[in-house]
Design a protein around this nucleic acid. Structure first.
Lengths: 229, 229
DNA sequence: GGCGCGTGACTGAATCGCGATTCAGCGGAG
DNA sequence: CTCCGCTGAATCGCGATTCAGTCACGCGCC
């Protein structure tokens, strides 16, 4: 890593060998960049980023060591790209789904269930995100943090709206709550990924956590369960 | 790292130069091992474990590069020792405090407030634990995970007891709740450490989170706030 | 149709720098 | 004088990155 540059970004992010190769490649099946990313996710999850040799990723992807450098600037770029390609997409999906839910209550539940649901099928990715991405403080601050912040903002906004409309208690900071929720989901995912990762476990957890959090957050208005107004 | 051994542990953990040096050292003030650990915490927090050269830690501690190897087996051992020395102690304190709280409700609140309170004065340590320790999947699994598990168990037990005595809802898994709580605290600490780390921020957050979680977890029995059963 | 050439993706062995670890000494204390 | 903690420059292995080739292909020409 040497984690030093990441500022000027002189050279272009990578360079997909000309056009072509994009989705079909010339001779082999599936495009290479994708194969490499998938292999990297697998290997990073198993051995950790720093302990993984570029040559191991190459072997796992079935390409030559040098090929990786045709698609990625460096080993770091591999990790960063992984994050960008997957997580950003994942967060986008989540954000899009949010649009469909009308009430803050449903929105919050959706956030919880979607985040956990999406990662449930991607154990390796889950591990890379919850563990390996934390590898470098700098990487974290440069790339991950901003994206996470954005996500935190989304949660905080939902909470805040709920407070404004009176369905959520307003004696807590939306920001603090957002961080806690994010952390809870993150922790749940991490222990799940590092542990047995039993199928369905995350989704089941999602429901429970959503129940507890919502109960803790709701003022009781509009639940159909309130005693007085 | 090479993160490979960590199994047989043939050589002894380290070797404090004979006895002596323990708390007073011969000529300099404060014992060296401690100085090194403190410096390591500082530097690791600032640059990340892998990006930190052993020589940097040495410089920060005001000792020669080689001296570090008189107290620690390797760079890894430095990180592991840091974790063992500090966190284990920290968790012990917490566990001891727990004994003083009678009800599950107070116990849970204590867990939350203690964990955040203890880390509040140790920003660098907080960062190392929440970020840097995650560096190596193997290190994580070998050293950190077991300790964390123990901690998770503690939380789970408190929740479980609360359920048995009827003060906590019992339609959620104590384990899931424990992981979520742990994650929430961890996430809160991490964002705090990586961000501005405003003084008092963590404690304030603790109270709020405890309020929300307890409300979400309580059945309403004995709160003096319940409407029906 | 067959053939030679140019192009560019791909290969993988060699390079080269970095930095953890070592160890031959040094100096103060007893 | 001996012992021991400490020193810090030199060593040495590792592994990311490079780059001189290889190979398949498509194209234009015969």
């Amino acid at each position: 890593m040497t984690e030093s540059r990441f500022s000027g970004e002189t050279t272009e992010p990578a360079r997909p060998p000309k056009r072509a190769a994009r989705t079909k490649s010339t001779r082999d099946g599936g495009d290479k960049r994708e194969r490499i990313l998938r292999a990297a996710t697998r290997v990073f999850a198993k051995k950790g980023f720093y302990a993984t040799r570029v040559s191991e990723v190459a072997k796992a992807a079935g390409v030559a060591d040098g090929t990786i450098y045709l698609y990625f600037k460096s080993k770091d770029d591999l990790l960063v790209s992984l994050f960008e390609d997957r997580v950003v997409l994942l967060l986008a999906t989540l954000e899009r789904e949010l649009g469909k839910r009308p009430s803050p209550r449903e929105r919050l539940r959706a956030i919880i269930e979607l985040q956990l649901g999406l990662l449930e099928g991607e154990r390796d990715l889950a591990e890379v995100i919850t563990v390996n991405l934390r590898q470098s403080t700098r990487l974290m601050k440069q790339y991950a943090a901003p994206k996470f912040l954005l996500y935190l903002e989304t949660i905080a906004r939902v909470v805040s709206e709920g407070q404004k409309s009176g369905v959520f208690r307003d004696d807590v900071s939306p920001h603090v709550v957002a961080r806690a929720i994010f952390g809870a989901l993150d922790g749940l995912t991490m222990t799940w990924a590092l542990g047995k990762a039993d199928p369905g476990g995350l989704s089941r957890a999602a429901t429970q956590i959503a129940d507890v959090l919502l109960t803790g957050l709701e003022t009781g208005l509009g639940t159909g369960l309130e005693s007085a107004r």
